[in-house]
Simulated scan of single mutants.
Amino acid sequence: MVKLPVLFTTSCVQKTHGIGFISTLYSKRKSVERLLRRVIIQHQISMFYFLKVDGEVAGYLKLDVDDAQNEEVDPNGLEIERIYLRKSFQHRGLGKQLFEFAEEKGREWSKSVLWLGVWEHNENAKNFYASRGLTRFSEHVFVLGDDRQTDFLLKKALV
């Protein structure tokens, strides 16, 4: 079992708040827990796990299930929408811990597949996910400003 130090576990928020909401909270990390507790929870579809190292927020993991998933990959799937580590905490094996924690949650919740999207030019991330057993099955285009970008969709069976 992966031991994941967290600031606030299984923080479920409505999809409408999205990543911008959490990023805003995250940037004010001293008040993250207090503010998250104020969120009115209507659907348990997105979970945020904040990783804390030596008393400092190092990063977070966002997991999506059911209607919160960004693509219709598998009705019993678990999407890793975001694994984020602050620069000063990268290359310490923490991303691996977050990924293993996501796998563990997927199995705990009886999910059949774990999947995510990764930017086509992010070689480090693509190599990391390949080393964790994910394989490419599709892609989707998204717009960043005026620029069209492509995410590769990767997945791994959990059963």
Rank of each mutant, 00 (worst) to 15 (best):
A58D: 05
G77Y: 00
E71K: 00
E104Y: 07
L98C: 00
R92F: 09
Y60F: 15
N124I: 12
N127S: 15
E104H: 00
Y60N: 02
E71T: 10
R92Y: 12
H140E: 13
V141L: 15
Y84W: 04
I45W: 11
S131F: 10
Y60D: 03
F50A: 04
L98R: 04
A68Y: 00
L144R: 11
F101G: 05
L61D: 01
E120C: 04
K126N: 11
E139T: 13
V57H: 03
G133N: 12
E120G: 01
V143P: 09
G117C: 06
F99T: 08
W119N: 02
V57E: 08
L78M: 14
L61K: 01
G117M: 06
N70R: 05
A68E: 07
T135P: 03
A102Q: 05
G133E: 13
G59M: 01
G55C: 12
E139K: 14
S110W: 03
S131N: 15
G77N: 04
D54C: 12
F48V: 01
W115D: 05
V141A: 14
L114N: 07
I80G: 07
Q44F: 12
Q97Y: 04
L116I: 02
R132L: 14
L94K: 01
V73H: 04
K111C: 09
L144H: 13
L51K: 00
N70F: 00
R132H: 15
I80D: 02
G117D: 02
T135R: 15
G59Q: 02
I80K: 08
Y84F: 15
R92C: 09
V113K: 06
Y49H: 15
L78E: 05
G117V: 00
Y60P: 07
L134P: 06
F128Y: 12
F101N: 01
E104L: 02
F101P: 05
E123Q: 14
K126H: 13
V65C: 09
W115V: 04
H43G: 07
W119P: 06
E72V: 07
F48T: 01
H140P: 11
V113Y: 07
D54H: 14
Q69C: 11
D54P: 11
R132P: 03
L85K: 08
K62R: 13
G133I: 10
T135A: 11
